[in-house]
Nucleic acid binder design. Structure first.
Length: 286
DNA sequence: AGATCGCCCTGCTTGC
DNA sequence: TGCAAGCAGGGCGATC
């Protein structure tokens, strides 16, 4: 499940292996992969053809490839199971290959979007004056963005009548945090997922943000070293995703701080993992 | 209008 | 053994 660090690893791979190449042909093999492109797969391919790719950018879990001199970008979201792979032409098609992009140069590689569960996809959008695809203008900056405003985040938290894990997953408040890193950061900060945000003090917000950044940077430093030249996103198969987790997936296992068995709770159609001792539930649970 | 919920999708795991 | 249900879950649109 790619979250910010995994997507950033992909972005770096694309910057190295795809930037500044000109599209010869884009082939859509599954319509759902480009469902956000209303005009359809054929049109999507035609519009990429002949354009040069600029430097890939990222905000939260979204990444995009600017198409130079068009004012547009190819936006990508990996969803649950998406991968962007740079493969030799001769590599056999992956079972869940959805989109293939070939380039005009003589390098023997092509870009492939592979996605088993098809929650992810590619689409083409106009850029805002900031160079951001217009459809993600509502996505907040992510906590590794130098322009992320800690103080504004704190005030937004206090304004919202919600609980802390919901807030961490709200991409309009802070982007790039998914279920896994939310649980990890909350465990590190010793905060229960159902704690109301209205009562957060400035130091408590700062502490939590620090842990969010720590856990993401740790994952990033692992991921940054484990992909090779032709495999941009390994998505769980070869190393960077098996980083040590302290909370997520550890139901029944001893808390690494206090030894108390970790708990899993059904939460918003998914799971929340926490230590019942280190992360005390609020008195009035919603 | 802000908060909440259901749905999209496929493969692996679990249980009867 | 075989099938069905459960589970993984980000984001968007509908609904309250």
């Amino acid at each position: 499940m790619p979250e910010l660090p995994e997507v950033e690893v992909v972005r770096r791979g694309l910057e190295r292996w795809v930037a500044h190449r000109t599209v010869a042909e884009a082939e859509v093999l599954h319509p759902r992969a480009v469902r956000r492109h209303v005009a359809g797969g054929e049109d999507f391919g035609q519009r990429l053809k002949g354009h040069r790719v600029g430097v890939p950018s990222r905000r939260g879990k979204y990444l995009w490839l600017p198409l130079e001199d068009t004012g547009q970008s190819v936006l990508a979201h990996l969803g649950m199971s998406g991968q962007l792979l740079v493969q030799p032409h001769s590599a056999p098609d992956e079972k869940h290959l959805r989109v293939r992009v070939r380039f005009t140069d003589a390098l023997d590689t092509e870009l492939r979007f592979v996605d088993q569960r098809t929650f992810g996809g590619l689409s083409l959008h106009d850029n805002t004056p900031d160079g951001l695809p217009d459809v993600i203008a509502h996505i907040a900056r992510d906590p590794l963005d130098p322009l992320f405003d800690d103080d504004a985040f704190h005030h937004a938290l206090r304004r919202k009548r919600t609980t802390i894990k919901r807030a961490l997953l709200d991409q309009s408040l802070i982007s790039g945090v998914g279920n896994i890193y939310a649980d990890e950061a909350l465990w590190r900060a010793r905060v229960h997922y159902d704690r109301p945000t209205g009562g957060f003090t400035r130091p408590r917000t700062q502490l939590l943000l620090g842990h969010v950044r720590d856990v993401m940077n740790a994952a990033l430093s692992q991921g940054g070293t484990s992909f090779d030249s032709l495999y941009v996103n390994v998505n769980g198969e070869s190393g960077y995703f098996d980083r040590s987790l302290d909370a997520y997936g550890r139901e029944g296992l001893p808390c690494r701080r206090c030894g108390t068995p970790m708990r899993r709770r059904a939460w918003m159609n998914r799971s929340s993992y926490h230590c019942p001792r280190c992360q005390r539930a609020p008195r009035v649970s919603s």
